[in-house]
């Protein structure tokens, strides 16, 4: 008997609950249901927003890959995407950033050409309520987000590997460095990290630190001359894969392929991994521009949802570095979308 009464009460409560839930509006339901609310909040925060992007240049693998990944992500979520190509011109980049700020996008992404060029404009953007994301090189003006490489660490990592392969009397210990532009921060940082490691090891002798100005043809000529003077060179480390391809060809021409280890830091274009597979490069350390493109997109999505006032807080997303030394690591390079 008791059991029957309990059963009846339970059924009654269930029916009541059902009746209440049936009369409630869908919004109220979603308010109480975080799973449904998530996408609605997300869309509300990002849909219809405008993101502006100014790299140093397009038309090179890294710039094109970043742009392709961002475009795909932003299109997916209904974000308007503006791209300006300064084609290596600092003045064109400054003009592009200035005019974009006046168009008041919600987020401005820049790849700094140097640490000072855009500092005032980035400050002005944040003062005007625009989130600022900086890519691969942080300027003297900190901003809402930085996505990129820690180049000092890249220099350290590659130098440590060179010491392991060339140091301790295993070889002549002679190392040649092929810098980019000597005034470029990514070049200066790699140099700093590398020398930190090399200076600690007495068996390593840095015989050349010439600058090839990011030009593969110059890297080729410099390396040919260095190899002539030091045919017993153990390793050459170029501060950018595409530039170092010229050095790799010089090593091949000198008949020293396999004996002189060619290292490069790389953003991971397919050609760099191809050279590793052809044994023209010994190893590259790839920071993968495709993954960086995702990181930049995620930083933008996070900022748009944060509710923070632009310029009030900072986040940093560092790129991971991946060693590529053979065919098995070929997925650490990217193919540009057709």
């Amino acid at each position: 008997m008791n059991a029957t009464i309990k059963m009846t009460i339970k059924t009654g409560i269930s029916v009541l609950a059902l009746a209440i839930s049936a009369t409630a509006s869908p919004t109220v339901m979603a308010d109480n249901n975080p799973r449904a609310q998530m996408r609605m909040d997300f869309d509300q925060a990002v849909k219809g927003k405008t993101v502006a992007w100014v790299p140093i240049t397009l038309g090179n693998p890294i710039g094109d890959m970043w742009t392709a990944v961002m475009r795909e992500n932003f299109a997916k979520y209904g974000i308007k995407f503006l791209v300006r190509d300064p084609n290596f011109s600092s003045t064109a980049q400054l003009q592009a950033v200035t005019s974009l700020i006046n168009q008041k996008p919600d987020v401005l992404i820049v790849q700094n050409a140097n640490v000072s060029l855009l500092t005032k404009e980035l400050r002005r953007a944040m003062d005007n309520g625009i989130y600022v994301v900086q890519v691969n090189l942080l300027s003297n003006q900190a901003s809402d987000a930085y996505v990129g490489v820690d180049y000092v660490d890249v220099g350290r990592q590659i130098a440590t590997d060179i010491v392991a392969e060339c140091g301790g009397g295993k070889s002549s210990g002679k190392v040649a460095l092929v810098q980019g532009e000597v005034t470029a921060t990514d070049s200066i940082d790699q140099m700093k990290g590398a020398m930190e490691v090399f200076n600690k090891d007495k068996s390593i002798k840095v015989v050349s630190t010439q600058a090839a100005k990011w030009d593969s043809s110059k890297a080729n000529a410099l390396t040919a001359t260095t190899l002539q003077q030091h045919p017993d060179l153990c390793a050459t480390y170029g501060f950018w894969g595409t530039m170092q391809q010229g050095a790799a060809q010089a090593v091949k021409t000198a008949g020293l392929q396999g004996r002189v280890k060619v290292y490069a830091s790389s953003d991971g274009p397919r050609a760099d991994c191809d050279l590793v597979e052809q044994k023209l490069f010994h190893k590259i350390l790839s920071f993968r521009a495709d993954v960086q493109g995702e990181q930049i997109s995620n930083a933008v999505l996070s900022l748009l949802q944060s509710g923070n006032k632009p310029g009030s807080k900072r986040i940093t997303l560092l790129s991971n570095n991946y060693w590529v030394s053979g065919k098995n690591e070929r997925n650490y390079c990217y193919d540009l979308p057709k």
Partner: peptide, 13 residues
Amino acid sequence: STTAMVDLKTVNS
């Protein structure tokens, strides 16, 4: 032939 690539950036050098 010496670098196995073309880099049009050389134009700006």
